[in-house]
């Protein structure tokens, strides 16, 4: 029973980290209509910056640099490339982001090489014991930070001018600009937010129990795509629900792999999110919490 509980808690915590990434997808998509295939590289970039800087400037300053770096890269991608597309539409933008992802990921991979960089997180490999359930401190911390991050997002989007303006711009850009809301500014804010969320996720995805910063971390962003999609393309709460669902599914399928293998084959944990996504899309083509009219591609 405690094994099951451990899997569930691990899954929830992993799911929350995924939902940070998924929320980044949703925010970028609603604020600029871009399917950000380079999001995984930004996740990696945030973690990479922390890993190379923590020795010289200390862990917490390095975290700040990591978050800022990821935000700046996101804003720059939007300002320099997305806004200058020769033929701006969701399709070309998505493929542009594939190009950006290839460049970023290749360069980061080259810099990291064959090593696994350590993050230098102060919580290290410590664990937290709750009764007979043992959880890595990093996972518990991740859950806490994620909850705080989503609280901050909620405050931003419902209690501040900027956030309400961003929602207005996402709902109907041309009309929002008639209110004096500058779409370039809301777009930049969206990309910056997504970058920050990605870097936070990157830090937790590369600290214990993960071995450290390696290029494969970028792939975890792909696992967040099903979370984003099944939550609904334009919904941050949807991203949370989707992330939790995918996190739980992955953790349980992986945790009980031995029992499931005869039916599902080995390594089903990697595929399960996509199977869940396809099934959800079939039943609800606009995701669990997505609005029907929000996307006209």
């Amino acid at each position: 029973m405690s094994y099951f509980l451990e899997q569930v808690l691990n899954g929830l915590s992993y799911g929350l980290v995924l939902s940070l990434i998924a929320a980044g997808f949703a925010i970028v998509f609603t604020s600029t209509g871009v399917l950000n295939f380079a999001h995984g590289s930004v996740v990696l970039l945030g973690a990479y910056l922390v890993a190379v800087l923590h020795d010289t400037i200390g862990f917490w300053p390095a975290v700040l640099v990591g978050l800022a770096g990821a935000a700046v890269v996101g804003v720059a991608i939007n300002a320099l490339l997305v806004r200058n597309l020769a033929d701006p539409n969701p399709g070309t933008a998505a493929i542009l982001m594939l190009g950006v992802d290839i460049v970023l990921l290749t360069e980061l991979t080259r810099r990291i090489g064959n090593q696994v960089l350590t993050l230098g997180a102060p919580w290290g490999a410590s664990v937290v014991r709750l009764g007979d359930v043992t959880l890595p401190t990093g996972r518990v911390l991740a859950a806490g930070v994620t909850v705080v991050a989503f609280g901050a997002l909620w405050y931003l989007f419902s209690r501040t001018d900027l956030g309400v303006g961003m929602r207005a711009a996402a709902a109907d850009g041309p009309t929002a600009s008639l209110m004096g809301i500058r779409l370039s500014r809301t777009a930049a804010t969206g990309w910056a937010l997504a970058g920050i969320l990605a870097a936070v996720a990157g830090i937790f995805l590369t600290s214990f129990p993960a071995p450290g910063v390696a290029p494969t971390v970028a792939l975890s962003a792909f696992a967040a795509i099903p979370a984003w999609v099944l939550g609904g393309f334009d919904s941050v709460p949807g991203a949370v629900v989707g992330g939790l669902l995918i996190g739980l599914t992955s953790a349980l399928v992986t945790g009980y792999e031995a029992e499931l293998e005869p039916f599902l084959g080995s390594g089903f944990g990697e595929v399960a999110p996509y199977v869940v996504m396809i099934v959800v899309l079939l039943v609800r083509p606009s995701g669990l919490l997505g609005s029907k009219e929000a996307v006209r591609v």
């Binding site: 001018d161 309400v164 929602r167 207005a168 709902a171 929002a176 004096g180």
Partner: peptide, 16 residues
């Protein structure tokens, strides 16, 4: 803005 409340619509209107 259909998903925003009346108050939020007005808030967006007064953005500047």
């Amino acid at each position: 803005f259909r998903d925003l409340t009346v108050a939020e619509n007005l808030r967006a209107g007064g953005y500047t």
